[in-house]
């Protein structure tokens, strides 16, 4: 033995998980939804997804370069944001708008706060909120097979027309790229659960609250579960680690709060949707939630 012994503090072994592994697993988990989008919207879906992802990664790169930070675009986190944003966009969106949305998502949603781990909001939702505010018409034009249609939620809200439940679940409905197939989203989520890379309390609480809430107020709960962005939001955006609580009770509260907000916005608000704003609003409450749900430590007398 001729080399120096390494001295570091304990523990001397670590688990195999890394941020990179987790992020790329999320990318993998989003692929079924991307495939579903491609199936329903063909080449259009591919261009929107690619544009959003390239926009996100490029913005991340530029920020890291300019700030002289380590280039870490290979950690997959910007790819996740790009994908998530793309899945919230209508297929008919102009590509430059999608690109711009990604720039805002990473720039304003993440990098201004200091990059990975620092963002109080889900970056993809920041991007989408920006686009909704800046280009309301582009963001609510839905096309299926060249024919302009409305989303199930807006059809219901505006005209009182319901959509067939099976179609809602499997897909083939009007809506954004990732809203069409709950099945594809659940498939991806199941994979993350199996890997232990996602928490289930938030989506369960959120979806459960929407189900019970809409049912209690006489709306069709199944319809509210699958028609619109709830599944995408609850499974992949509300669960964003950085912007959700770290305590178990906190996660229940976060999901419950987000679910309640969705019910209120959808049933009494001016928007047919509401998932995006619900999650963003709950994001602001995370530090507070964590503070008040700190578990009693072993042996602590509170």
């Amino acid at each position: 033995m001729n080399n120096e012994l390494i001295v570091t503090s304990s523990p001397h072994v670590r688990s195999q998980d890394s941020v990179k592994k987790i992020m790329w697993s999320v990318v993998l988990a989003l692929l079924p939804a991307v495939f579903a989008a491609v199936y329903f919207f063909k080449a259009r879906a591919i261009s929107v997804v690619l544009t959003a992802v390239v926009g996100a990664v490029l913005t991340e790169y530029i920020f890291q370069k300019v700030r002289n930070k380590k280039i870490a675009i290979d950690d997959g986190s910007a790819v996740v944001t790009g994908l998530l944003l793309a899945l919230t966009l209508p297929p008919s969106i102009p590509l430059w708008t999608a690109f711009f949305g990604s720039v805002v998502a990473i720039g304003l949603g993440k990098q201004v706060f200091g990059g990975i781990g620092q963002n109080p909001f889900n970056p993809a939702l920041v991007g989408r909120a920006f686009l909704t505010a800046a280009y309301p018409v582009l963001m609510t034009t839905w096309t299926v097979d060249g024919v302009s249609t409305a989303t199930p939620l807006s059809k219901m809200k505006m005209d009182g027309i319901a959509t067939d439940t099976w179609n809602l679940f499997v897909g083939q409905i009007g809506g954004s790229l990732g809203e069409t197939s709950a099945l594809a989203l659940l498939l991806g989520f199941a994979y993350l659960l199996y890997k232990g890379y996602v928490n289930w309390r938030i989506p369960l609480a959120m979806v459960g609250t929407v189900f019970v809430g809409t049912f209690a107020f006489g709306a069709d709960p199944i319809f509210h579960l699958f028609g619109g962005g709830l599944m995408l939001g609850a499974l992949f955006m509300a669960t964003d680690m950085v912007s959700s609580p770290t305590t178990k009770n906190g996660r229940w509260i976060f999901g419950l709060g987000a679910g309640l907000l969705v019910v209120v916005i959808r049933l009494w608000g001016g928007y047919p949707e509401g998932v995006m704003y619900s999650i963003l609003l709950m994001n602001t409450a995370v530090p507070l939630i964590d503070r008040y749900t700190r578990p009693r430590s072993l042996g602590e007398v509170k």
Partner: peptide, 15 residues
């Protein structure tokens, strides 16, 4: 690298 708030440490702590 920066903390991503994943809460794995919170879920692991025996105390």
């Amino acid at each position: 690298s920066p903390c991503i708030n994943c809460a794995r440490c919170v879920d692991a702590c025996p105390m």
